[in-house]
Design a protein around this nucleic acid. Structure first.
Lengths: 111, 111
DNA sequence: ATTGTTCATCGCAAATATACGATGAATGAG
DNA sequence: CTCATTCATCGTATATTTGCGATGAACAAT
């Protein structure tokens, strides 16, 4: 499937926001990030106990978060410890704050 | 396709973040929101000029943003004027700020 | 009534996402 | 070496997303 008819000229910011959003687009991934960021940071496969999904499915979701750069893994045999990628996390925070915080044009007379 | 094996017990916040994220998960929708939020309030037709996608495709993306509540439409025959739904926009801003701003657990010793 | 403009919706095709069980790889324990 | 544990990956099935052209609905102007 092609993405557009002609030009795919998206801003880096636009691509980044879309990319991070795709990673956040499933509630279970939001849940995982919450667990990692909030409570007991640096979890392992204890996620499997907290989430009631097949282990393979959770692993897939972790991969999505990894690919988005939002988390990082660290092998600690025979387990793997995951935690938030603070750098990327902070970048995401700024990106979204800037996006949602963008002002409204002066001529908006809707509603 | 089933969503989970057993419990779908997601928080309202988790669902909301996932839902809004799905709407932001395509760069062209981020672009559209930027145009609506930043510049002036737009008619659909002006978007057609700015985006180089089939009119039907743009209309579909607008529908996604509408369903997510991020924008609102106002008919002004024969055109339709779209603009940001400020209320929802502000709520999204808070949601994401709270999410990304959530602190890290004291025990994070990763990396 | 007919035409033109603007936008939404339908129908199709292809790509992605989601979930699961089964299997494979890596490692520590015995 | 063999076994158990932990996690990733493969293969499969189904659902959703994305894109387009074609068509439909609403309305203003003629």
């Amino acid at each position: 499937m092609q993405r557009t008819l002609t030009s795919p000229d998206y801003t880096l910011d636009e691509e980044s926001i879309a990319s991070i959003s795709r990673a956040l687009a499933h509630p279970v991934r939001v849940r995982i990030l919450r667990l990692l960021a909030g409570e007991t940071c640096c979890f392992t496969g204890e996620l499997t106990g907290h989430i009631s999904m097949a282990q393979s499915t959770i692993s897939q979701h972790l991969k999505v978060l990894l690919d988005a750069g939002l988390i990082q893994g660290q092998i600690d045999p025979p387990k793997v410890k995951y935690c938030i990628n603070r750098e990327r996390w902070g970048l995401a925070e700024e990106l979204f704050a800037g996006f949602f915080g963008s002002g409204f044009g002066p001529g908006c007379d809707c509603e």
